[in-house]
Computed example of a mutant assay.
Amino acid sequence: MMRRLKCDLSPQLTTCLKLADSIRPDCCVVRNRIPYDAQCFMRDISRDLNKLYKRHEKTFVKSKRIMELAMPMHPKCRFVPKCACPFKKTIEIIPADLPSNTRTEQLALPTVRRLLYRREHAIKIGDKIGESILNRWLRSSYLSLYSRLGNMQPLKKPQKKKKSTPKEKKRQAAYIEKLSKAKVPLEPPSWSPQTPERKGEYSMRRLKKLARPKVFELVEKPSWELTPGMKAYKATDRIKTMAEPVSRPDVHTNDEPEKVSPTALKYKPSARIKEMATPLAKNEATLAGDLKEDPFSISPNALKYKPSSRIKELAEPKEFENTHIRENPFAISPAALKAKASPRLIELAKPKGSA
């Protein structure tokens, strides 16, 4: 048998959650106490609740295994009454709505074009409530970030056209009368000797003008002459200084190349430089290997060497055939004997000055 809690309002439990004054803590002040006579309503409430339980049981398929699994392992009441005295702040009731996101809300808004079409339809059918709702949505859609990025402009009242003045009406009538007249066809151009007769031909006057050679004016430079002004010319000091060659001192040349600098005379070499300056010591054993009695003598191994066929082939000098020299350089080729000279060659073969 499952143990029941005090907060379980089952049909079998006919008493309410009533705490005695001796059990209730002193900090909890009871305001608007429920009268004890109100317990008479609990029987009616429990009866209606019993009907709901029975209706609820009929909606499910009764299976022993399912009912066993449906039983909670640790049965607890959904609401455990606690004393509100330890809480310093007042308890604020907040509706359990989902947290809203600005971007999601703005993306969920319908487009302005669709809302305008729906509002126009609502105005036609006379739906005032729908028009007010659509106006509210239009305001939100206009002020959304995506409408501002799309440069959606709010609606403006259409401006009434001004009535045209009699002067403007007269001008408009004259313009309409001008447009109503039929167009006069253009006359074909008359033919003249200067103009081309057919398509593709050119004017002879134009061709003659283009055929004239271009006139170039040769500009000859006058010959240089010594004028009297040049003879009596006196150069200024500035021109004289500019005419003098620039003298640049040669820094790289040394006046006394054999002279030793005083710093080099006072220099004291270090131990490392002295060690590097000493010549290498050669022993007699090393000198005997370097020097030979007859440096031009052939080694016995070289005398016994037998060259291979490849080395013999490479040692032979190459024979070059001179194709530029013929056997009989003075012989005339048969093609030259059969050749016939052209009039141009005969003319060129004649000596200069001959008739």
Rank of each mutant, 00 (worst) to 15 (best):
D237Q: 11
L143D: 14
T241D: 14
Y305C: 01
P196G: 04
L9F: 11
P257S: 04
L207S: 02
A341H: 03
K128N: 11
P99M: 09
A339C: 07
S22R: 13
E131S: 02
H121G: 02
L69R: 12
P249I: 12
K208M: 13
K54A: 12
G229L: 08
R139W: 05
K128T: 15
Q12Y: 01
F320T: 10
T227M: 11
L107G: 01
K161G: 06
T104I: 13
P81C: 01
C40D: 13
E319T: 12
A182V: 07
L52P: 01
K51H: 08
P334R: 06
P81K: 01
K64Q: 13
D97C: 03
K352Y: 08
E131R: 02
K163A: 15
E220I: 09
D255T: 09
K214M: 10
D21R: 13
M67V: 11
A339F: 14
I129A: 15
L145C: 04
A349R: 03
Y267F: 15
E321N: 02
V30H: 00
S223V: 12
M67Y: 08
W224L: 13
L179T: 06
E225M: 06
R238T: 11
L9P: 02
S164D: 11
A264C: 09
P75N: 08
Y305M: 07
E293Q: 09
S10H: 05
S140N: 09
L287S: 07
P72D: 06
Y36W: 04
I125R: 15
P110I: 00
D8R: 03
T236H: 08
K234M: 09
R47G: 03
R4T: 03
L69E: 10
D26E: 14
K338I: 05
L210E: 13
K268H: 05
K157T: 15
A277C: 08
I311F: 07
L107E: 13
K266G: 04
W224V: 12
I176D: 14
Q12A: 15
C16V: 04
V184Q: 06
A336N: 04
R43W: 07
P213Q: 05
L116I: 08
K88Q: 11
L303V: 14
L155Y: 04
S46F: 02
S223I: 12
K209W: 09
K82M: 11
P249Q: 05
I133S: 01
A288Y: 00
S10L: 15
K169T: 04
M67P: 00
Q153V: 14
K178P: 00
R43K: 12
S147Q: 05
K306I: 09
Q39D: 15
Y305R: 10
S132A: 15
L52H: 07
P25K: 04
A349F: 01
K352N: 08
T90G: 10
S261V: 03
